[in-house]
Design a protein around this nucleic acid. Sequence first.
DNA 1: ATTAGGG
DNA 2: CCCTAAT
Length: 692
Amino acid sequence: MVLQKRLDYACGGYRAPAMPHLPRSARGKRSARKKVEDNQTYAFDLLATIAGKLLSEIKSSPSPCNSTGTSNAAAGRDAAKQEQIDEEKSLKCEGFDWLSCNEAVFSPENALEKHITYKLKENSNVPKDSSSGPASPFIKSDLSDEDAIGGDGSRIEHGVGAAAEKCIKGSLSSSSAESYDRKEDGGKKLLVAEQQVAGNFMDRNAPYKYSLDDPLVMDVKPPLVSSDSSVEAPLYRNNISRNYSFPKQEDGMDLAADKDDDENSSGCTHPTPVANKTSRMPRIGDRRIRKLMSSKLRKVAPTVLQDAGTSNYDVEQKPALRGKRMCYTRQRTQRSSFKRRKLFDHCPVSPYDGGIYGEGLSKMSESSRIKLETDDSHATLCGANGASSFMTGQNCCYELPDYHVKLSIKSFKVPELVIEIPETATVGSLKRTVLEAVTAILGGRPRVGVLQEGKKVRDDNKTLRQAGITYGDKLDNLSFTMEPNPEEALDPPPSSEDPDFLGLACAPEPLARMPPIAPAAAAVDKRGPDSTESVQTCPEMDHDSFHSPIDASSPEKTTASALALVAVPPMDVEALAMVPLGNKPKRSETPQRRVRRPFSVAEVEALVQAVEKLGTGRWRDVKLRAFENAKHRTYVDLKDKWKTLVHTARISPQQRRGEPVPQELLDRVLSAHSSWSQKQAKLLLKPPAPLC
DNA sequence: ATTAGGG
DNA sequence: CCCTAAT
């Protein structure tokens, strides 16, 4: 093929003009087969899913598994590998966990942690104004990397504490790492090392953490692209303020090509359109599940965005793209996530009633920084290793007696969420924007952290009693945090980066950024032991204007909301589907979906021009011609886009969605389409003459 | 790697 | 956009 094409070019030095390509032999369609498969597999999938879910819940408690392979952490440069390893371990340990879990009391943290899934999504989509500009709202997050910096500051101290802690853990047993994700930054791990043990030193750490962050943050420069940095500092650093200088483009086509990728320039990221199609899960076939799974797998971590100038993030990075994709997917699946969350939340608690329901409650503390979090978890893991057996023992149910600690969480707060939205934006878009921002923060499955007097309690295996959270005890100082899961931190930044290609359409579109501080703090109000336990999640978290069926927001009904959370009937297939993912995360297996990057008008223009010249059926050439520099537009994409353009041109304007494409372009699309169709038809009838 | 189509 | 079959 290549040769052929080359020849074309060679001829006379000009490109073979519109030589229609003969259609290849008719290709069979195999849709039928798929459907059948779906049907067959459906039941199976469901079962598997359910089973997976059960396992996954348990699995979430990371602890035991890691006992062995601690060492690699340091070595593992690439997060991906690490993750896989971890996962594998987790799987292996599943059985174990399961057992231990049953016996162990479920601490509220665990339950929450496991069940809440969040996704990060970077772009907020808002319905953009068709006309343009700055209308689209965006979320700007400035998260500074508090953590990163903060970590350093606190590091030393923690180092000591960590060591001590490890010892303790080792001997006492217990610590379960909350996160199984191991990352390499040794230093950080240490520092963060958990304080959890209920140890006293923890105290010191906590304060530092928080205090340090702010100041430090400012100073510290986001390392940007390095993988490490991304891990460590999950904060989003999108630079919104990028220069939007676009190279001028000679013709539409060129335009399309240029900017894009290389420059990451761009600010032009277009906001991802909000997926309105929430309802889009009509069928639950295997495919659906697959998608879910994949989405589940995706981690979205807040990542550092590269500066426009600095890195070519966009250019060509497959991985990067994937990350973005992931984000997108999440978006789509998010809504269902909520349901899932609720569902899950519920399960752990009620089923294992032996466990605790709640505990006492109290205040909220600051959220820890993402980075720290990550590190901590890391450290924890390491420390935890070896002690696993113990842990189990400790956790035994009997430890928790009759006293139940009850607590109610009034709300979870999401710190530092900066949202900028045009005055002209609709309330609906505002809601969405907020939702998205929150979602982004919560991106994956957030972990719930328990803090006592500002100190994190890391050991999940400890009983409340052991941790000092006892009936009527000092619950006042107990607080919960919602933090991003470390796992997710590894992933590439959601979206902002992508420089979309032409700036034409996107000019001023703001990027959405997530606040650097991912973790949200939860405020708990204390109640007497008698008070009903209720967990209220903030409206933001729980429901966005769109989907959440349940009204968690109403303040007054604490109980009700709690019920609501639990009450969600386990019918959501997606929820089920997601579980398996957690269990067996075969991330490697299912690549994430690419981030959605709607074609801008400029791109469409370029495409139309190219197709007018080259005709349909020569997508590779079209790509080369008009989108050569747009790494994210493959010929398949172009072909697909053309397909949709043709469709769009045929439907009524009212039915069209997304950024409106000028009618003129659509007309050209139709004309080119019909024209080339005819040519092809003719060619079919009589073989084309030799090109040269 | 490309093209064509269905999903 | 993804996935696949057929090239």
